[in-house]
Design a binder for these strands. Structure first.
Lengths: 224, 224, 224, 224
DNA sequence: TATGAATGAGGATTCATTCAT
DNA sequence: CATGAATGAATCCTCATTCAT
């Protein structure tokens, strides 16, 4: 499945004529359009024609860049996963590795904030959720590249905190999910139920408070 | 295909011909099959033929009970919402209304447990998530009948706890989502990423721990 | 094709209990309903269910009286043809056979009037017209039982008039069609284009005038 | 199936690829096929597949040119109406406007002849008759664009003749229908009952004689 | 590369007909 | 006789994919 090799995240900047840049940007444009369509109408409900129009090209041209509709779906998830990994890596680089667990987890809030702020970043999980039944490979990708990386990292941090006596002795798997859960709810909420008349708390504040609650809940009582 | 040979469920009641009893069970059988298909292949990906076969009847018979495929989707969500409401009502009846907030919220774990235990109960939210883009009415139903009932109730409880000085002063909306979030993650996890070689913590224990963390995180430190 | 044997035009009067009369009337009721449906929606567009409801019975019951939907169509045309023949015969009996042609043709106006007055009588030709492509047998029936009887009769009369020097020497086939044509237009008009705001001339007057024009046109000029 | 191998008709114009020329001819080819199918099997009885095959294209291609089967029906009627209007306009241009009524009406025979000669031209009225029950809009189109134009014109001519003392004082509406009626009968006859062994009088002669009869019937007797 | 006409398999829906009751 | 649930063939329409230009 090679179509993902087309859009090598090519920096999109240098000194080539604009039309060339456009041509290189095509696959990404197409995936952007596909993302929007898949979100709005689901994979089966989206049509290649609409995706093409959304990318400003013709139906036939899509097939110059992707083998099939399904290939677009897979490429889309891959791209999102890569972006997520990039963002995560950047954050990890930015912060010292061996800080204390509470600070580290609180820092993770930055990543959460990024995910909540960028609809593109959260599009993929939503699509995976919706299409996992029909395309188990998507769940597989996500699991392998995101879950199996992020969960152990979180679990490790929590475990370290427990070893240091900062965190109470609860199942770190559960704790990790308690952390993620809040973000997930917020994200799904925003993309499904958000209503104009009742604005959700803004992401910054939400993350702040959610982390506060869960981390506080993890901490050993100073005195019971 | 003798019309009485499929699905047990039967035994509903007595002296009517077996054949009419079946007719009474049909719509529910169909919705069961539809639920399974929608979960596995999404609304657009599911075919009426497969749903019908899943219910043990012919394509045409489906249309004796539902106007259209879309009507099945809506009926499915309504049924799930009704069941949820029923379960919630039962729980509310079972427990005193004016208990202290901590106990009340902990009791709510029973509802969470029920949701996590019954795949039927959680199927609907997953479908709503997946199809909300194309069927905003589904989100509307869910919002009106579930969210707009459950969230205020949770928020009220939390606020009461805050007024009693038991809970810290955090945004109750966020706290409610922190609570729900864990359950949501667990449920989605189970239906999308669950893998045999790494069994998720069992629902009972998960709920127990999650509630413990979040409620603990909500509580005022006895001493800071 | 036996279903037409059920309704032997049985006078529908004697001394049998009402429910029996109903049962005997069934086939006719069904054909009435079928006629209405075929007129409104065409043969293919009409559904057996609606025909049955129109006759006040259930879909299944229709098949107790008619082999198939097509059989109903054929029976319907046969019945109409029979009625027409009956009406025509009655008229012929009522008038002397060997009158002069002008009077005889003018008397034929009575039949025209009957056809225009009774929508049932004109329903069949309209249906035959619409469905002749798919059911050539209908055209065949109509041709054999109506056209091939009426046209020669008209032609004979006209020819006699010509022999007597009353009518001019025009092709009697054409003359016959000129006569019929007016009636046909009027009938089709009424059933297709009639509009409330522009009432068609009433049938009586229309027939009167039409016959007057055509017969006058047939007559030899007393002086050229 | 090479896209250029069907139907000649071609030659429309020059320097564009053969393949695009076809595309321009398509809608008309499709309507031709639809006309034939609707005539033979009625609107409901005709299948898009057969229409497509009749036009030498595939089912799906039909939908590149028409929104739906119904749209084809409407387009078909419109096309026929336009052709009729064109033919009528051409005739009106060819003859002086203010001739004497008898001549003018006799000239109208040319139009009648054209209608009877071209099966395409008469197909539409037949279809309208058959489907008016289900598609009143068809009758509406026909009424607005044909009837409401032709009838008043005929009535005007007849009235003028009456004012000039050439025609007798009969209802001009009826006279107009007497005129049209003959043509209608002949046309319906030909398309429904025509039989090889008994050829109808040829259109030319038929029109000639019919006009002769009716106009003669309209004329004032020189001497009674 | 890019276009969009063409294809045809696939899916929702209807409805004549059957048959258990 | 009568009912109406059930069937499945038939039909309209969509859309992923191909391909001539």
């Amino acid at each position: 499945m090679s179509p993902s090799s087309h859009h090598r995240r090519s920096g999109r900047s240098e000194h080539c004529p604009r039309w060339r840049r456009r041509a290189e940007a095509r696959p990404d444009d197409i995936l952007d359009a596909a993302e929007a369509c898949f979100l709005e109408e689901g994979y089966a409900g989206a049509t290649v024609e609409r995706i093409a129009r959304g990318a400003g090209i013709s139906k036939g041209a899509v097939y110059l860049y992707f083998e099939s509709k399904e290939a677009m779906l897979v490429a889309l998830i891959r791209r999102s996963v890569a972006k997520l990994a990039e963002a995560a890596a950047a954050r990890l680089d930015a912060q010292g590795q061996d800080e204390d667990p509470v600070t580290a987890l609180r820092e993770a809030g930055g990543l959460f904030r990024a995910v909540l702020a960028d609809p593109h970043m959260f599009a993929a999980p939503r699509i995976v959720l919706a299409e996992a039944g029909r395309f188990p490979q998507l769940a597989e990708i996500y699991r392998r590249e995101v879950i199996d990386v992020a969960m152990p990292a979180a679990v490790r941090l929590i475990r370290r905190g427990q070893e240091q006596g900062v965190f109470r002795a609860v199942d770190p798997q559960v704790a990790a999910r308690s952390l993620i859960g809040g973000v997930l709810v917020q994200a799904l909420w925003r993309s499904v139920f958000a209503r104009d008349d009742e604005p959700a708390p803004d992401p910054e504040a939400f993350i702040e408070t959610h982390l506060d609650i869960v981390l506080n809940g993890l901490c050993e009582r100073k005195a019971a």
